[in-house]
Design a protein around this nucleic acid. Sequence first.
DNA 1: TATATATTTAGACAAATATCTAAATACTTT
DNA 2: AAAGTATTTAGATATTTGTCTAAATATATA
Lengths: 91, 91
Amino acid sequence: MSKYINVMNDIFKALNDATRREILDLLKQKDMSAGEIADAFNISKPSISHHLDILKRADLITSEKNGQFIIYSINTTIMEDVLQWILTFKQ
Amino acid sequence: MSKYINVMNDIFKALNDATRREILDLLKQKDMSAGEIADAFNISKPSISHHLDILKRADLITSEKNGQFIIYSINTTIMEDVLQWILTFKQ
DNA sequence: TATATATTTAGACAAATATCTAAATACTTT
DNA sequence: AAAGTATTTAGATATTTGTCTAAATATATA
């Protein structure tokens, strides 16, 4: 199995959850700490941490430690892969 | 929960499987019967039928009966929804 | 009408997933 | 150094998912 297929698997797996897509929508607007992100949902912090891990493994987000906080940012470049795949369906 | 979210859920759920993405890649090239599609994979016909059902529920494909055969076609218009969502991440 | 072909439906099962609580780790502040 | 805050890790559990075999349905052909 090619590397490309694994990448696409990880990306689509990451996108296959409404909470994770909402996290991306939040990060699209501004960088946020794990706690800030968790506060936006009625889900426990450990669960949000798990979602962040899946998004990170798919390279859809990056994280950087800032004191006690971990700040998450969106990585828009990886979306290019999905975009290219989608575009192959445009006629 | 809005209708839009359900649509996106169904689409992303459908795309979250390598076999289903391959089926779409096949149908991108030409319409095919369920049997022809199944022959392209080392998976049982009932399993492929199940995958086709998921793709159909997401409106990613359509089907038409032709004698004993059921011919599947891709529905590219639904990809527009995904495309638009992806494009919101471009800068 | 009987048989063959094409496809789906039903039911079972193992693996993956989303969630939770409790505990661990890491950093900050007093 | 102790206590507080932020986050993750560990482990458990219910639900969802992908797959299979067997059976049902629908159409075609001999």
